[in-house]
Design a protein around this nucleic acid. Sequence first.
RNA 1: GCCCCGGUAGUUCAACGGAUAGAAUGGGAGCCUUCUAAGCUCUAGAUCCAGGUUCGAUUCCUGGCCGGGGCACCA
Length: 533
Amino acid sequence: METLRKQLASALTASLTDLNPVFKDVKVEVDYPAIGQFGDYTSNIALKAAKILKISPQSVAEELILKLKNLKGLNGIFEKIETAGPGFINFYLSQAYLSAQADKILSLKGAYGQLKPRGKAKKIQLEFISANPTGPLTIGNGRGGFFGDVLGNVFKQCGYGVVKEYLINDAGKQIEVLGHSVLQDEQALYKGDYITELHKRLQKFNGPAKVGARAAKIILVELLKATIEQGMRVRFDRWFSETKELRKTKKIEKVIAWLKKKNYLYQSEGAWWFKATERGDTRDRVLVKGNGEFTYLANDCAYLVNKFSERKFDRVINIWGADHHGDVPGLLAAAEALGYKGRQEIILMQFVRLFKEGKEVRMSKRLGTYITMDELLKEVGHDAARFLFLMYSNNTHIDFDLNAAKEKSEKNPVYYVQYAYARLSGILKQEAIAKGKQGKIKALAYGNGQELALIKSLLRYPEVLEEIIIGYQVQRLPQLALEIAEKFHDFYNHCRVIDRDKVDWQRVALVKLTRKVLGEVLAVIGVAAPEKM
RNA sequence: GCCCCGGUAGUUCAACGGAUAGAAUGGGAGCCUUCUAAGCUCUAGAUCCAGGUUCGAUUCCUGGCCGGGGCACCA
């Protein structure tokens, strides 16, 4: 199904090209006007075209409107299309169209929020969190976790083959360091209660490597997986072990050999360097250290081959903390050298700064100062925590105060949305509706302002999905949920569904419709849709 | 020094180059004999500074100032 917004953009492109072929490749944007009086959709294309044609925007707009009105595909959708201001074209949806859409969505068997995948890149691997198994999940990890989970949901919803994946860095030096920490010897680095606990359980074993490996397994299962699956309610499709999948299979050696053969590497001071500067990086990167150990990037090279060549993903999206931003050019250069140019994307999540009683707490696993995801979930609950994090854009720096979050958790906007859902459910449980007989409604016909505004907010849902698929702006989803809830609460306060035992069945239909769509939105966001509160 | 983010109501965040910059929370004033007042209505309150591009800039560019992060044969 194609969204109306997209249809409009194509219609405008067609009309514009018809007017003058110069505009064949011009990208037409259709926006939502900030103010209701300017309609439901708006386009500034006449303003842009006027500049090139050197005639007034208004006259371009008027010609375009004439052409649009002759298009059969748009017949009946708009009550009016007019030009306003400096040359905007404003579109006003007709009541008949809105009512017809309501009917259509209500009779859909499956989900309303579905789209056809764009382009050919349908198989996507989405890697996120991937916190090292050296300690509990922190709030910083949690942010990317919710983000990745919802982004994955959106892709799945829209027909992409998505694999949500967690890379377990269970090989490498950090595991040895973990071993030292658990043994509490002089090379210990990590601190925290879990280290003390592991010390008790693992002191009978010898050697930091062995202790580290065992500790990592325990941490993965008891701290990370538990928090992620039960606490955060994130389901990964695959937990990818570096040790098992890359180390033991010698895939790193293989990719290094291949890169050497291609002359993409050189040796200097005993180390093997990847010529990353040839591919836009600011410096070359070490893949094999002087002592023969592999660097992180070497793993990633093998992992890239696994993802693209062995598992045949069209596209790979990594969600990283912003502290890794310096590694982005290296990975992209590697992807390019291996032949996967343009198919690897990286989304950076900016940092969460922590405050406790107004004072900043620097997060560090090494210092043992951090707030774990478990603590947060315990304090504010899953739904509030998830919704809170999802409302921020990925490149916003969050100043997070646990005390404030705790205080505000009761005022969390998620409850506003859930309350709307509970109210919707409550109405449908009313005896007059549950046991009443629905009168025949030939065709839905809404005319009331609150009813129409509510329907309009519901119609935004697929368009929001479309936006997220293009720009990964996941925060649009909680925003939409709030908008739908707001329009519904407004409807609730102004429109009686049951008035003195008389049921307005048309409004019952609208309540059912809203409940369906809001339920879907909440499901994609990953928070509960409560029947009552 | 170089690179990446950010600077918007008291506070925490939105805003896809557009028309009158939105919410939430906090402040002030109201609304329950009718489907859940976890709601609704009204009210006060903001784009860091200086240039530039544009018909139009919170948004793009340049330069400041402030904050966060990164510049390893660490992960």
